[in-house]
């Protein structure tokens, strides 16, 4: 429909070029105005709202692919244990001679970056300020500072949040969603998009299972239903139980149970 004159209203289709009026544009006689959208006040855009982020993500993904780098975007609620899992993972992989680097995302402070730095891995802290997620543009800048080596592993610890980071592709090869057993069994049902878009789900702090009411089977049933293809890991970073399959998967040597065989 023409929003300038209303012609073309559904059920009121005018004959082309026969309107009997103009829109006051110079040089246009009655009935002569074109049906070009712009003249009629409509601009077709048809563009994804996150196209700019996706453009940066595509660059990052291309960089990782070209360098043979496996990259991980760690997403969870605050306090699920991302930093602890990352510390233990880095210590183990660095000891095995793997090169690793880390991008830390937090709203404020560089506390996590300091913790990670003690493992010896190069780390770059991004403080997002008011923003509740990292975006691909920030990752691109962080990579310029980190200059990760060919064939290395890059970990991005996202801002603690199960909602917002989900919509922002960072160009990672693997999206890891963590759920700790001190949280609710039904968390996958409450935040389905995060679990649905993960390539791997880690159920962590399993050493605390004897002390909490967490129902592992029910939680796994929800995760499998939302994301049949995700790799699943049950582990305790604190005791080291269950870490080996996770480390093998991270290093690209297999490991992990596909959610649906």
């Amino acid at each position: 429909m023409c929003t300038t004159c209303g012609c073309g209203r559904p059920g009121d289709e005018p004959e082309a070029g026969d309107h009997g009026h103009d829109h006051g544009r110079e040089g246009k006689r009655p009935g002569e105005h074109s049906h070009d959208d712009a003249l009629h006040g409509i601009v077709r855009v048809e563009q994804a709202l996150l196209a700019e982020n996706d453009r940066h993500a595509a660059y990052v993904r291309g960089f990782f692919a070209g360098m043979g780098i496996r990259s991980f975007n760690l997403i969870s609620a605050p306090g699920s244990g991302k930093t602890t899992l990352l510390e233990r993972t880095l210590s183990a992989l660095l000891a095995r001679g793997r090169k690793c680097s880390v991008v830390e995302g937090d709203q404020q402070t560089d506390l996590d970056a300091r913790r990670i730095a003690t493992t010896g891995a190069p780390v770059r802290q991004i403080q997002t300020g008011k923003a509740c997620h990292l975006d691909a543009h920030q990752i691109r800048h962080a990579l310029e500072h980190l200059s990760p080596e060919r064939g290395s592993l890059v970990f991005v610890e996202n801002v603690g949040n199960l909602i917002c980071p989900t919509e922002f592709d960072l160009g990672e090869s693997e999206r890891v969603v963590l759920l700790s057993v001190t949280e609710g069994t039904d968390k996958p049902a409450k935040y389905p998009l995060a679990f649905r878009t993960a390539t791997s789900v880690v159920l962590c702090k399993t050493d605390l299972l004897p002390h909490v009411d967490f129902d592992v089977e029910e939680s796994l049933r929800l995760i499998r239903g939302l994301n049949p293809g995700a790799h699943l890991f049950l582990l305790s970073a604190r005791t080291g139980e269950g870490m080996e399959p996770w480390l093998r998967w991270v290093a690209g040597d297999g490991g992990g149970t596909p959610a649906r065989p």
Binding site: A38, G41, I42, R44, V45, E46, L49, E167
Partner: peptide, 10 residues
Amino acid sequence: EMELDSLEVT
């Protein structure tokens, strides 16, 4: 989907 389809402008 999350897309800007069109604009009405003056």
